[in-house]
Every structure is written in C-alpha cells, then in structure tokens.
C-alpha cells in the first residue's frame, strides 16, 4: 500500500474505499442541507441528485477522508470532541489576550515534537487543527507519526513524551473514539 503513494506524508493509506466514499457522501449531504437550509421536497430531490453527482466526481480523491469509526454514537462523540475543543479554544484566547496585552510580552517560543497514535490522514488533520487552535501551540509539520509544533511558552529541555502529554493527549482521547 505504501509504495503506491511514495510522496504522501507518512504511511497513510490514501486510496479511496467504500468507507471513505460514504464519509464523503455524508459530508456533501450535510453541506447541501446547511446551504439550502430547507426541507422542501424539491430542494431534497435536487439535493439527492447533486450529492450523488459530487460524490461520484470526487470519489477518486476521497481517500484522505478514510478512517472514521462508524457507530450510532458517532454524532455524540463528535459533540464531545467539539466541547473539548471549544473549551480549549476559549482558554487559548484568554492566554493570547494576556500575552498580547501584557506590556513586557511574556513569550518564550520554541519548537518541540509530539508523537500521535492516530493512523489515518483525517485523524491527524483533525489533531493538527486542534493543536493549532489551542493554548500557545501551532502545528508546523506532520511527518509520519511525528508532529512538529511551535510552542509559544516552551519549557527548556522538554522531551517528546512530556510534550505529547502536555499538548496532544486530551484531543487524542476525544478523537480516537470516532476516527482511527
């Protein structure tokens, strides 16, 4: 599998499958419903046609969407993740506000690496996004299972495991319940 996409970052399977196609279909359907914002019958018929057409056209590129763990609790898990995420977003903004508004500019930036257990491209993308929007951290690069992170308040001489526990663990726990 890995030799088919030699330039892909990491050992991630990016081939489209029925499962990634299903994720694409559901996402397109949700976007259609949100954009039209109506449940009128003619909108729904048009929506089914458009959703199927878009899914068929985009299917060959849908490999990066693979890795969702389908279950009936999926919406609930996503809500839990969004809750964790929103809390972190608020914390990060008060953190940013404090740093920007303090005249002495209390920052001590550094670059650390973090290891992730997520194996799918979608999972790593969500993790990288979450890390970027949470207190003082910015994902610079994702290579295999290592994330390079710019930390605005980096403790000196920190090692990989400590950094992972401090930055990534909370999100990974929430993410691993609905994505590989």
């Amino acid at each position: 599998m890995s030799n088919a996409t030699p330039k892909a970052a990491g050992h991630i399977d990016r081939h489209p499958s029925t499962e990634s196609g299903l994720t694409l279909l559901v996402m397109v359907a949700i976007v259609w419903l949100l954009l039209t914002g109506s449940l009128a019958i003619q909108e729904l018929v048009a929506g089914v046609l458009v959703t199927l057409a878009v899914t068929l056209i985009a299917y060959p590129r849908s490999g990066i969407l693979g890795g969702v763990r389908w279950s009936f609790a999926l919406p609930w898990y996503i809500l839990v993740y969004l809750w964790v995420f929103t809390l972190a977003l608020f914390k990060s903004n008060f953190d940013v506000a404090r740093r920007v508004l303090t005249p002495s500019l209390p920052i001590r930036p550094g670059i650390v690496q973090v290891r992730t257990n997520l194996t799918s491209a979608l999972g790593r993308m969500l993790l990288a996004n979450s890390i970027t929007l949470t207190p003082g951290t910015l994902t610079i690069d994702v290579e295999n299972d290592l994330l390079t992170i710019h930390w605005i308040d980096c403790p000196p001489d920190i090692d990989l495991d400590t950094a992972t526990a401090a930055i990534a663990t909370d999100f990974e726990v929430a993410l691993r319940r609905f994505v590989r």
Binding site: L89, F90, S92, N93, V96, A97, R99, V100, L105, I107, P109, T132, L133, G136, T137, L138, I140, H150, I152
Partner: peptide, 18 residues
C-alpha cells in the same frame, strides 16, 4: 506586537477564529 512570524501566526489565527 509579536516579534517574529511564527508568533504572529499564533495570535492571528487563534484570536481571529474565536
């Protein structure tokens, strides 16, 4: 206010997203 481009990205993204 931030001294280098990485820190600018940090504050820019987070505060503006919220």
């Amino acid at each position: 206010r931030m001294p280098d481009v990485y820190n600018r990205i940090q504050t820019g993204t987070k505060a503006v997203t919220l």
